[in-house]
Design a binder for these strands. Structure first.
Lengths: 341, 341
DNA sequence: AGCGGTTTCCAAAACGATTTGGACGAGGTT
DNA sequence: AACCTCGTCCAAATCGTTTTGGAAACCGCT
């Protein structure tokens, strides 16, 4: 299968058109001045030879490869196969790729280039999308130092002043879900939070504490690593429901955690949503929330739309345009059986 | 934002380590022979300077960039924004990207590089995944000529003997859905087919004709372009239900068509599934089948798993390994309200 | 000494494009 | 006739690597 490629080069075209490689380059890029007649001859020679300029060679010279990189942070430390059920990122990635193509870029999903075992090709991108940056994100440090354009999808919690991110508006979302839990009959609302130190977790924690305190109650939050998944959620649920004053509603940060909490509730014989209401601040599209019994109320973070916005802003920056930064991302609360009597 | 990059080059490292660029290159690639002590000095110099070899320059020399390209054919002629609802490709792309990263590659979604307006970066890929090739696919012609590895996801109908594709097993799938429609009470089963000339459509047509004839009936097939979407399906439905002997079951190739047929049936006052049964051979995950009233029976083509397999085979080929070609892809019939009394 | 064989390193030539700094001739101005 | 300007074109340098084809030093052996 893998033979040697025999594409025509700029020299072949030059020879055939009876001009120099310089002229061929100019005829294509429109950079120098080339007589119309000559340009036509060059174009014809190129057509006959099936010539197309080599992107890699061009990229070497101009340090513009035409590729945007997408770093999906939460995937990074994990066994990626484990995450296949998490549709959010799949849909984000697919949609970003489509949007990039429309702008004339390729979109590449790459692991964090600051990691030692990362494929070297990651460095070659013209700009990066980072979902979701962690506190003092090392990639952001590196990109800033090397003057490579990037855009966080979500804020780096340690760099609140930076303009280089899309606001997820986590606080609003969490508050709305908590309000919904209360409206559904929850009088003592606990929270199961994640451990990644990104906007999603840190802002959610703040929002939860604010919300609880505003109602004069004591917060009841437990933490489980995202990678602990459903098992971690189940543990958290057992801890909560085993308390002297157990909660009658639980807010979760991930669909997997929520599924685990649901399992823990059922194992204890608690009715959902009769005894306990469960809701999740994300992952409305994952099977964990959608296909559970009952299905779990959760939030659609509109990954498809969000990705499109992110690509538009990043592409502008790569091209030297300073675009207006959009307001907080849109979302929709999807009410399901777990909070609906 | 966009300043000039000031990364250390191989020369800087060479100078600092007191050796030649050649030696630095060898120390990193392990190609030549370098004394252990020297190699250590080089590595240290590189670390101090924060040096990482430039992928583009390397790619220029070795014609291996470390990138796999993904060409999604059905997206190609379309306004891509139109397709956002089609989760199949989003999930396929996302999953392929994950699998590629695990193999040390980046995965880039690119438009057909044979098209004139395509971003030039498309040509730079080491290998291509093509879902789903059309008859005499021009990209396959070009890649074959230039000896670039590729893998079709689905067969090029005009090149049945080629080993360069993953078999979707369309015939099996269509037959199972038709059997299901019959089992659900359909006695006269029509088909709404697409117009793209790829395995999916051509094999489906053959399978439908075979199935109908084996039961001694006359086929009743109409065709609508994929891009016509729900409106096209609705037209097709009106045509079918307006006939002297209208069908009592309709098989569709796409979720959009199925949604349109469903709308046409309801507009005529036909009960689904009482008077008419409707099923779709794909798109079990799109909102057109999942969120319609009633939801439409359809097939889960397992895009996540399929993408993973495709990347594994392609990466092998890029690396010169000739992998065994897997058997027909897996799938699952998802029975929903449109065929369940 | 002379000779083959290792080991370790390097200078220079690729790779395929873009960019820089003129060369050359035609035409106009003084 | 000398001097500019302008429009076209080209030779050579450049981007950061890898690869090729030795060179230099050292070894043990005859």
């Amino acid at each position: 299968m893998a033979g040697k490629r025999t594409r025509a080069t700029i020299k072949d075209v030059a020879r055939r058109a009876g001009v120099s490689p310089t002229t061929v380059s100019h005829a294509f890029s429109g950079n120098g001045t080339v007589a119309a007649e000559t340009a036509e001859r060059v174009r014809e020679a190129a057509r006959e030879l099936g010539y197309r300029p080599d992107t890699v060679a061009r990229g070497l010279r101009s340090s513009r490869l035409g590729v945007l990189g997408l770093v999906v942070r939460p995937l990074d430390p994990l066994d990626t196969a484990f995450l296949e059920g998490v549709d959010y990122f799949l849909r984000f990635a697919g949609s970003a790729a489509l949007a990039a193509v429309e702008r004339g870029y390729g979109l590449m999903l790459v692991p964090d280039p600051t990691r030692a075992d990362a494929p070297a090709v990651g460095l070659a991108c013209d700009g990066f999308l980072i979902t979701e940056p962690v506190e003092n994100d090392p990639l952001i440090t590196m990109l800033t130092r090397e003057c490579v354009p990037f855009l966080g999808v979500g804020r780096d919690p340690a760099r609140p002043a930076s303009p280089d991110y899309l606001d997820l508006g986590t606080g609003r979302i969490v508050a709305e879900v908590l309000d919904h839990l209360a409206a559904a009959g929850g009088s003592r609302v606990a929270a199961v939070l994640g451990t990644d130190r990104n906007e999603w977790n840190l802002d959610a924690e703040t929002a939860y504490l604010d919300w609880v305190r505003a109602r004069g109650q004591r917060p009841l939050a437990v933490r489980r690593a995202e990678v602990a998944g459903e098992a971690g959620g189940r543990e958290a649920g057992e801890e909560l429901f085993g308390m002297a004053e157990p909660p009658d509603a639980v807010y979760c940060q991930t669909g997997r955690h929520a599924a685990g909490v649901l399992a823990a509730a059922r194992a204890r014989g608690l009715a959902v949503p009769g005894d306990v209401r469960i809701a999740c601040g994300a992952d409305s599209d994952s099977e964990h929330t959608r296909s559970s019994v009952p299905p779990i109320t959760s939030v659609d973070l509109r990954p498809v739309r969000l990705a499109r916005t992110a690509v538009a802003v990043l592409a502008d920056r790569v091209e030297g345009i300073e675009p207006p930064v959009p307001g907080p991302a849109e979302y929709e609360l999807i009410v399901r059986g777990s909070t609906r009597g």
